[in-house]
Amino acid sequence: MQTNNLPIDDLKKYGIVDADNSFSKKLSANDIQKFLQGYTIVADKDKSRATFQLVENNSRLNVIFLERDKSISEILTNSKDKIEYSNIQDFSKSDNELNFEKKAFVIDKETNKLVEFDLIKNARELTSIIVDKNDARETNRYKIELLKLKGFLQDKIDQFPEMAKEITNDLNIVSKEINTVNGVSQNESNSQKQEQSEVQLNVNDPDLYQDANRIREEELEREENYEKSRGFRR
């Protein structure tokens, strides 16, 4: 890990290093250590996002500017009640590259922190989280986002034939998660139908109906005998 050839001017430009050449007080010792090891620093403001990463043996700062379709405050507010989805565009990429990502934002109940998942890179983990929620509404919302992403990727195969293999790999990942969600939805539907069937059986079962009538007739007969024994007449 090299620290003597850091791009100090660029680090100062983006506020990562202060005027006295020390790292910003906004960064923890752990943040700084990970940054020097190649991890990315992410800065969010409104709909904008900037990522900073040291590359080329820590001699160059790689900066990427992204734009979301929703502000970070909107995402934080909405994610309190549901999983929030957002599209992100990477403006550092050329017109010949894919510059689109779809993210899901989930509140971690244990830490109460907002966690970001990529619908392709973190597909299996995200699907597992949503399935574990056992919430048909959330499952359906997730499926809709996957279908949107699938349609986008299918369009891009024709637009970027030179990237067809890479896009097809992403498309296969998304299709697999859609199949998983469909399987979960089918199981939920079958379970509901089974419950309804059992209820209808209890109501319409002729044996149960006849038993109920027989019991009622026996009760009436006992009442009549009791009244007769006391000299009453209907």
Rank of each mutant, 00 (worst) to 15 (best):
A19T: 12
S175E: 15
A19G: 04
I167N: 05
I75C: 02
D44C: 01
I167L: 14
Y39R: 07
K26C: 10
S229L: 13
Y142P: 09
N4Y: 02
A123F: 06
T51R: 01
I120P: 03
D207M: 10
R60M: 06
F91G: 02
K93W: 02
K102V: 15
N78P: 00
K93F: 07
I72F: 00
D211P: 05
L11Y: 05
A164C: 03
F35Y: 00
E195W: 01
K121V: 10
E116A: 08
L119N: 10
M163C: 00
F232T: 08
F100K: 09
F35L: 02
R214I: 15
S86A: 14
Y142H: 14
N96R: 08
S175Y: 11
L6Q: 00
A50F: 04
N5W: 05
E145T: 10
D205E: 03
V115R: 05
Y39G: 04
I215N: 04
G183V: 10
D95C: 03
N87M: 12
F160E: 05
K45I: 11
A164Y: 00
N96K: 09
F100Q: 06
D170G: 04
I88M: 08
D158H: 02
K12G: 07
L149G: 08
E224D: 10
L208F: 11
N213G: 07
E56V: 04
L208G: 15
D170Q: 09
Q154E: 15
E224H: 05
S22L: 08
N169Q: 06
D81W: 03
D95Y: 05
N78S: 14
F91K: 09
K165P: 00
Q33E: 07
L114S: 02
R49K: 10
Y39T: 05
I83R: 00
K228F: 05
T40E: 06
N112C: 11
L201D: 06
L147G: 08
K26E: 13
I178R: 10
K193H: 11
K47H: 03
A29K: 09
K82D: 14
L220Y: 06
R216S: 14
D44E: 04
S185Y: 06
F100R: 09
V184K: 12
T111N: 06
N57S: 12
A43R: 11
D10S: 13
T139E: 08
A123E: 04
A104T: 08
Q2D: 11
R137Q: 10
D44W: 02
Q159V: 14
K228W: 06
D9R: 04
T111Q: 11
Q154M: 11
D155L: 10
E219C: 14
I72Q: 03
V106K: 00
N21D: 09
M1A: 13
Y39I: 03
R124W: 11
E195T: 12
S48P: 00
D44R: 06
F65D: 04
Q154F: 00
T139L: 15
V106R: 01
N169A: 14
L61H: 00
D211N: 14
L147S: 13
K25R: 12
N4Q: 09
L6N: 02
L114T: 03
F91Y: 11
I75N: 01
Q192K: 12
V174R: 07
S229E: 05
K45G: 07
I41G: 01
I88P: 01
L76R: 12
V203S: 01
L147N: 12
V174T: 06
A29S: 07
N5K: 03
